[in-house]
Design a protein around this nucleic acid. Structure first.
Lengths: 361, 361
DNA sequence: TGAGACGATGGTAACGATCCCATTTTCGGA
DNA sequence: TCCGAAAATGGGATCGTTACCATCGTCTCA
């Protein structure tokens, strides 16, 4: 049983068996042009008997469309992207598209190669969560090749014609921090993957569209503080790499160095896990001595004690929206940006409460 | 800026620009046949200047291989499959393959359609975690089309030539239950998605290759009990649908109806979460009054209190192994099954301890 | 010096569908 | 019965690449 030389039936075989020309057979099967009912049936019967399956490659050669979209994300294993991927997959399937997936491990070189391969396979469009917001030459080039691009979760301002679908991270952060402020907290720390963007001015909020999620969340924190007349303190920002262990260490340091803190806001699910563990190990009572807000409503938020207050982001909808946007760009056949920002949602549970000294200062 | 009529450079353009025939240009770029160094350079230069990118569709038409594999799984959003997908993606990339992903929501009709579409796109092989172990006609048909198949995590004995890559669930379960038995537990409950397979005989262990994971885990539980001379009791099996809420209810019922139980083994991560929540709500002290073992080592296992003892399964490696197996089948160009069973690992934490009455009976 | 081998190159036929145009058939109405 | 329009069908050309074969020069060795 050798593999390649298995010649599956072609439309010519079907046509021959049905006793018609291949043009007619093609029309009968693809339902275009006009074919008599009798012929259609005969062709259909022949196709069924031969187990005919049209060769999508040949079809795409002619039509110029592959009915396939590419997806380029840093890590399918990550909960956020996995769920977003489910949204992408569902939206694509419902529109009759298939998905070529590349997981790039956050490596720019791999991302470049992935995009190139996808372009070689002539996908109709690409949903991408780019590694870098600046080095996007490989994405810009796609536009010249007639491949639609939609940016998921991470901006890339140089890719002019690409739509940008994201959660409004600034707003989501503001939700979280305002909740703490409303409870009476004044000394609020933050565990963040980002540092304040250079040259950031609080009065230029529209710029936030060009921020990556981590930076946007930090900006939302600052905005909320200012909105309440509180001062932003550099030392309240615990910078952490994107890893549970790093967040654990960063949080320990933050709390040890700043005993006056009464609340901490974590800007990502991974960071939330690390921070939560740090609180446990430091034996700091939550929410009595410290309020904690996490990001992303994962399974465990209701299993731990105290149950975790979080800002949830609609990952699934994000994937759906990005795909719908991409497909509509492909269908509309024009380069028009249709950016969309989805809203996060605050879910209050037991890890946030009034600070011990509320009203005492 | 209209989209489709953007004619990207073809090899003919490159050949013209370099002043050679397209055969020579093709040889120079794809590095086969023989071409003089000078010509090769000239062609390469022309290709670079035109931004030439070979059309993979046309290439595949001729060569008969797409350098693409299909992946069909029930849910990319699920932690196990997401991580396995990461393994698949990595292994595929390293071998120069791309991945067409279909997430079928556990729906047989969608799985059939996905497989059909993948076959139409002429993938070189498919990694599939089938919905059903019996209704596999669509997979069997693939073999006749020269498309290699590897089964991930779920068997399908009718698909003769397909390799089966799975965790040894029977063994993994035995690990978990033996741990409980070693601690002195005698009345051990189980939360399971499966019922005992019909006609199951404890003395026919080789049959376990044809069991789906949930059934295999249940069988491992029974095996371990028998191995220790304990009786299997039907009423100790809490049957639950694959959902946290269902597992929560099933566990509540199990513990309420059988107060003599001193330990519970959960056969899946989702079920573990539900069972853990049930224990919390019933205010049963764990591990003092009840030991609990979960499945799959998720983030939260170390965040909850008590930290959860689990059987971990190597999801990432499973994806890698399945892909490597598939690719080697494709390369070997022959139909030979190379089944592989990976081992689970027991991670002892704080949710398991000696039963209160240990030694008392 | 001539035969043979080999390197380098060009021309053309595939691959399997769709698209376009020409031709034949059908059918309604005068 | 005949005409014209519309329906039905067939015959290429085409997409962009690789596979295959033929050709032509150059080099080597007897």
């Amino acid at each position: 049983m050798s593999r390649p030389p298995l010649p599956s039936a072609t439309i010519i075989d079907v046509a021959a068996k049905a006793g018609v020309s291949k043009s007619t057979a093609a029309r009968a099967l693809a339902r275009y042009g006009s074919v008599s009912a009798k012929t259609r049936e005969a062709v259909q019967k022949a196709a069924d008997e031969l187990g005919y399956q049209p060769n999508a490659l040949a079809r795409s050669m002619i039509t110029g469309r592959t009915k396939t979209i590419g997806v380029v994300i840093p890590d399918v294993g990550n909960h956020f992207f996995a769920v977003a991927m489910r949204g992408i997959s569902t939206a694509a399937r419902e529109a009759g598209y298939e998905v070529l997936l590349s997981s790039t491990e956050g490596d720019l070189a791999l991302e470049r190669r992935a995009v190139e391969l996808l372009a070689g396979k002539r996908v109709d469009g690409i949903v991408v969560a780019p590694v870098s917001t600046e080095e996007t030459g490989h994405l810009e080039r796609l536009e010249g090749q007639g491949i639609a691009v939609t940016l998921l979760d991470r901006p890339a301002s140089r890719v002019k014609a690409a739509s940008f679908i994201s959660v409004n991270h600034v707003e989501a952060s503001t939700l979280a921090v305002n909740h703490l402020i409303d409870l009476g907290h004044r000394e609020i720390g933050i565990v963040s993957e980002a540092l304040m963007p250079e040259g950031w001015e609080p009065d230029a909020p529209q710029e936030s569209r060009n921020l990556r999620p981590s930076a946007a969340r930090l900006v939302g924190y600052v905005n909320a503080l200012r909105g309440a007349g509180l001062r932003f303190r550099d030392e309240y920002v615990a910078r952490s790499a994107y890893a549970k262990a790093a967040a654990y260490e960063a949080t320990r340091r933050l709390l040890t160095d700043n005993p006056q803190l009464t609340a901490v806001y974590c800007t990502d699910s991974e960071l939330s896990a690390g921070a939560f563990a740090a609180l446990q190990d430091l034996k700091i009572s939550c929410p009595k001595d410290m309020s904690l807000i996490g990001f992303d409503d994962q399974d465990w938020a209701t299993l731990v004690r105290p149950r975790l207050t979080v800002v949830d982001q609609p990952s699934y909808q994000l994937g759906m929206a990005a795909t719908e946007e991409l497909l509509s760009t492909i269908a509309a056949d024009e380069d028009r940006r249709g950016d969309r920002m989805l809203s996060g949602r605050l879910i209050v549970r037991d890890s946030t409460a009034r600070p011990r000294s509320a009203g005492g200062r």
